[in-house]
Simulated scan of single mutants.
Amino acid sequence: MTTYLLLCAAGFLAGAMNALAGGGSFVTLPALIAAGVPSVAANASSTVALWPGGVASVWVYRDGLGQVAGVPLLPTWLATLIGGAIGALLLLWTPTSLFDHVLPWLLLVATLMLTFGPRLGPLLRRHFSAGIVTVLSIQLILGIYGGYFGGAVGLMMLAAWSLLDTADIKTLNPSRALMTTSANTIAMVIFAFSGIVYWPEMTAMAIGALAGGYGGAHLGRRLPPQIVRGGTILFACAVTAVFFLRAYR
């Protein structure tokens, strides 16, 4: 019983983080692994568990949905769905032992993109203008990343979009919530039919994630973007360090 209560609490925190800026899997993935779930199955179960919270966040943010780097929402959404399906299938074909060593590098990439993306953005925008093909290609890759890993895909999207757009995190959050939830939706369907999901652990976490996603989205409308971003970066750095120690110690 204690394990399920802790998983529910982890889901609540992760749902709130995803609603604020992303990175909820930095909480759910280690929590599921600590509960004894193998890493590949933990990643799949985490994706399914965070889905209800993502849907709740999209509902709260629905009035703020808009273009991504000047590209209409529909083609961006379709590219994300296709990428999510590809990534989910790739995960199912990845041995757990290999994923354990790839995971910290995925976390590191996400953390670096979040940290340095806003600084690189103005420099790139001075020398490079992103068209619809570029934006959709980037979104397809992000969808693959989201379907495969799930962890920090929201952070990756915010970081990548900040390279192409001058909008702040609060403005981009509604579209980010929709895209991450869309990638998770198609991945969730594939994982559910594959039989890889640990349903009791996932259910406990999903209950917490639903409440956290709804509350976090409302909180995200009020918190300054600097606080949201700074806190997420610090937490991402800590979890990345822990997973490097776990994989290579």
Rank of each mutant, 00 (worst) to 15 (best):
Y4W: 09
L5P: 01
A9R: 00
G15T: 07
A16I: 10
M17W: 04
M17Q: 06
L20T: 08
L29T: 14
G36A: 09
V37C: 12
V40M: 13
A42Q: 03
A42L: 03
A44K: 09
A44E: 07
S45W: 03
T47L: 09
W59I: 15
W59Q: 11
V60R: 15
R62C: 07
D63Q: 15
G66D: 12
G66Y: 11
Q67V: 03
V68R: 13
V71E: 12
V71K: 08
V71H: 09
L73A: 13
L73W: 02
L78C: 14
G83T: 05
I86Q: 05
A88Y: 08
H101R: 15
T111K: 01
T115M: 12
P118F: 05
L120C: 06
P122R: 06
H127T: 12
V133H: 08
I141P: 00
G154I: 12
G154K: 09
L155P: 02
S162T: 13
D165H: 03
D168Q: 01
I169Y: 01
P174H: 09
S182A: 15
N184K: 11
I186T: 04
I186P: 01
V189W: 11
I190V: 15
I190K: 10
G195V: 06
Y198L: 04
P200F: 04
A211Q: 01
G213L: 13
Y214K: 12
G216T: 07
A217C: 03
H218R: 15
L223K: 05
L223N: 03
T232F: 14
I233R: 11
A241L: 14
R246L: 01
Y248T: 02
